[in-house]
Design a binder for these strands. Structure first.
Lengths: 344, 344
DNA sequence: CTGTTAGCGCATTCAG
DNA sequence: CTGAATGCGCTAACAG
């Protein structure tokens, strides 16, 4: 008897029917809500279900015409990044509210992987797709390829693709963040961008330029570093600080850059630099403990979870069959909030 | 003509067959690798597939006996927490390496939600389950309920449930972290626990006590706060610091507590407290910029992504049908690493 | 090498 | 109110 009972296969509707002494149809109807089934039969069915540990096979179910799979395909670039983790959470929550589930794939920013995932999702009969696009060709996203499966893009739009998009107010956030520095008296403001998120990067850069322009300040190309490799924000910050006439403030276009910049600033402080020689920082993207930083940090705060919820809502609104669901593509820009951390 | 072409339903294997002038079986065989199909027919099939944008219906496919769904059900407590986001990423990566996909559900720590998710996953014919359990009854996880679907638990084990588990080395990490404080000369070490993660919390507390015992230090119940509500770590830290004989160091049992503690410390420093009045901190769980904190911080670092990979590997090893896959439950403890941040 | 038959689990349709 | 027949898309098993 060592080893215990061999685990069984999942029971089917037939077995439940047999166990309850009814036909499969009575089981099906009972599970569908019990309309037009005698209460005593429902009882029998439900206890058979419990005894056998029966779960309706959703895959077989979705095979029938008119039955949806209840799956939403979600492909994001980096689930390990709290930004996208929260985004995915938002999508999951809204999907769950309608009894749907998400199939999740991590693209790692690789267009090939993205294509694979989309293909796989379509094969799994997802009802819709939520995608943080990675760039490259978008052939696999064209309407002919997706058939009747709606798509929502997040964080980034793809020109020429007429689908719903949710974005942050990148331009406005960068504009207001930069303006805050200008208002604090800074005139030499470094820009720490990142080519990795081309679209978002361009928008934030636009906001930065707009604020400078509004104050009549000519952008100084020495202060603008947009092309450094991912992960080398610290080094880029070093280059800015080593300039003959270094910036007194830095606008960092994303979380990763901000962390890198602060690491470099910390390094210099530990090497004896005076705090007042270090730049103030505005960071697009919130991060924890900003208020404990050795230089004044202002964050352009936003809510990726809400972004995910919004993406899911757009998608769900396309799932019906009526005319209402066939409207033209919508663009949602989520507001961001400037949150100055108290000075140390 | 406004509105453009109406999107079409996904094509079926029959349509592809018709388009290519062959039978559905030839399409099926071609897509399965093309064994025993004439090359010229394969060509025809593949171009029909391309033209129609055909994707094999995985749900219908998995209906056939012996065909697996290629889905792994993953239920975690909080996808927005980078710890679990990275955990999920690890699972996804390993699943993807075998062509599988994950269906993801967020439990929010709610046992009822967990039950729903597990039931749903089983209905979707997942090949296996990875679960960060929320507590409460575990009836829904018993072998009779899961049938032949293997389960791997992460972060927490459930006594009486004989399944594979992946854990951090909680005891060892807390032990070594506490020991580091003792070795630095601290004798009054506060403990900031959290009842929300009962199992993990107990293990970390055990490590703390073990280190104290090894140095012959009697635990002081005034210094040990295990029951404060989630999110009130700052307040709890305040209570510790307001003691007549306050601790000179604090062991924080998780990331959230550490952030709360540091916020409180920052508040006091801004109110004029002297840095040398503030406690040193050891934080179980890494967090960014620990080296920039105004008090010395040591982190017990670990890799949740690796934990996820390990969980997925355990699961995959159970998916075959052979005897090899029927072994008894395994427990994997992932190593943690003590990482002292440089003093400010 | 290719096609036909049959059935996976379920729910719609139609008969009783 | 209940059940039997039918077919969703796909692929083993069997013919040809």
């Amino acid at each position: 008897m060592v080893g215990g009972a061999r685990p069984r296969k999942q029971p089917t509707i037939k077995e439940v029917a047999q166990h309850a002494g009814v036909s499969p149809m009575t089981v099906s109807r009972t599970l569908a809500g019990g309309a037009n089934v005698r209460p005593d039969l429902q009882e029998k069915v439900l206890s058979a279900v419990r005894e056998l540990g029966y779960h309706r096979n959703e895959n077989a179910r979705s095979l029938r015409p008119g039955q949806a799979s209840g799956l939403i395909g979600v492909a994001i670039t980096n689930l390990g990044n709290p930004y996208y983790g929260n985004f995915a959470l938002g999508v999951e929550e809204v999907a769950a509210e309608t009894g749907r589930r998400i199939v999740l794939g991590n693209t790692g920013g690789d267009p090939a992987r993205e294509r694979q995932l989309v293909a796989d999702f379509l094969g799994r009969q997802v009802e819709g797709l939520v995608l943080v696009p990675s760039g490259g060709s978008s052939d696999h996203l064209r309407p002919e390829r997706l058939g009747d499966v709606p798509l929502v893009l997040a964080s980034r739009r793809i020109y020429g693709l007429d689908v719903d998009v949710v974005l942050l107010d990148d331009v406005g956030g960068a504009y207001r963040g930069t303006l805050a520095l200008l208002d604090a008296g800074h005139t030499r403001i470094g820009y720490l961008g990142n080519v990795s998120s081309e679209f978002t990067g361009a928008r934030r850069y636009e906001g930065y330029l707009r604020a400078l322009a509004e104050r009549g300040i000519e952008p100084d190309s020495d202060l603008i570093l947009r092309e450094h490799a991912i992960g080398s924000a610290g080094e880029a910050t070093g280059r800015l600080l080593d300039l003959e006439d270094p910036p007194t403030a830095i606008f960092s276009a994303n979380n990763r850059n901000s962390i890198g910049a602060l690491r470099e600033i910390g390094r210099r402080l530990r090497s004896g630099a005076r705090p007042d020689e270090m730049p103030a920082l505005v960071s697009f993207d919130d991060f924890e403990l900003a208020e404990l930083m050795p230089v004044p940090v202002t964050v352009v705060d936003h809510d990726p979870r809400q972004l995910g919820r919004e993406a899911a809502k757009l998608l769900l609104s396309r799932l019906g069959n009526g005319e209402r669901h066939q409207g033209s593509a919508r663009l949602v820009e989520m507001p961001v909030k400037l949150a100055p951390a108290p000075s140390p």
